[in-house]
Simulated assay, not measured.
Amino acid sequence: MNGDSPGLLEGAIPPQTNTALFGHDAAQEFLATAYRSGRMHHAILIEGAEGIGKATLAYRFAHHVLSHPDPLEAPDRIADPDPHDAVSRQLASGASHNVLHLSRPVDEKTGKAKSVITVDEVRRAGKFFAQTSGTGNWRIAIIDPADDLNRNAANAILKILEEPPKRALFLVLSHTPGRLLPTIRSRCLSLRLEPLSAEDLDRALAHLGTAPGGTDSIADLSEGSVARALLLRNYGGAEIAEAFVDIIERGSLMNREPISALAEGLAARDRDIAYQFFTEFAVDRIQAMARAAGLSGDLAEADRLARLSAALREHFGTAAAYNLDRKQTVLGAFSLIFA
């Protein structure tokens, strides 16, 4: 992780300071056109896989709106932000009085991000919108991601969405919109981002100063996500993925040595991000297997794997909520898989 920005992957650029976005020209054009029409929806649900540029798009659009407060005089495209202009400097420093970024708060005792966005964080949004902008400009809340809202926080956000203040804009980010309250989804205009093409992924990595290309396994496992590519390259993600797939292909718990080795490695104190990668990769891999089974016509296997992916997600979520032992959590995951 980058020590200057909690939660930022090594090699990444914070979304609020990133001056380039790759692969989402149509989404940017849609937002610019909607804003310029003067009839833009007050809440945009920006959805898509993690690490493909949703937060960067949100900050680019926030910069666009704050730089052109009159929609009718706004340009028809979103330009790359000038890092030296006043709006960029305010966004980069977190000093903008017109933008509120809601994400999982840091636990003061552990120094780590909490597992959810709490209702106390959402109350900040209530106070934020209750204040009058000194410039009369837009007030923008970026919820990043809304998937992390706990039940009380989600209900609190819903109340604000139901009666939005004037000149208020919500940019609601979601990796898995199916996990959001249906009532929140219904209050938002959905804008789906697709994973990056191989070419755009290489361009994005080059922008980060990371050599594009790499092994075929990393290119395939990245699945169009810059964040996943960084995890695979910088945090041992490729080795974790290879070990997981190898264990799955063996098809049983008979050979416990590789399972124990993987669990031991992920339980180490300095493997927070690697462990998080494992939990997400395991669920994603089982989901991919379910889709493949469905496409091949094996509906019974597809249903079994879909249920397994949901059980794994719940298993990892419970472990995170109660700070359970990581080694036992990993071992328990394989017990579920091979039950």
Rank of each mutant, 00 (worst) to 15 (best):
L161V: 01
L189A: 02
P165G: 05
S174W: 00
G213N: 01
D216R: 10
L169W: 12
N234V: 14
S222E: 01
S190L: 03
L173Q: 07
E223Y: 02
E194F: 04
L189M: 10
K166F: 08
I157D: 06
E249D: 15
L180W: 11
L253H: 11
L232Q: 02
N152V: 01
V226N: 12
A227M: 07
A206Q: 14
A243L: 03
K166S: 12
E242H: 13
E194H: 00
A168H: 15
I157R: 00
L191G: 01
L189Q: 09
L181K: 02
I240A: 11
A241S: 09
A153E: 02
S225A: 10
D200R: 14
A153L: 13
V172Q: 04
E223F: 07
P182T: 06
L208Y: 06
T210H: 10
G214Y: 00
I247H: 00
L149V: 05
E249M: 14
L205T: 00
D202Q: 03
I248F: 14
L230W: 15
L191V: 07
H207S: 11
R185W: 09
T176E: 10
E162G: 04
L201D: 13
A153K: 14
N150V: 07
S186Y: 15
K159V: 06
P195L: 12
A211D: 03
S222G: 03
L231T: 00
L180H: 12
F170T: 12
L158I: 14
S174K: 07
A198W: 04
N150R: 10
R233I: 01
L191R: 01
A227L: 06
E199F: 02
L158M: 14
S186L: 14
A241G: 07
R151V: 08
S186D: 14
S190F: 12
G213Q: 03
P164F: 01
G236Y: 03
S222Q: 09
L161K: 13
A168K: 13
L158R: 05
H207R: 10
D246G: 08
P165N: 14
A211K: 11
A243K: 15
L230T: 01
A206L: 15
A153Y: 12
P212C: 00
I157P: 08
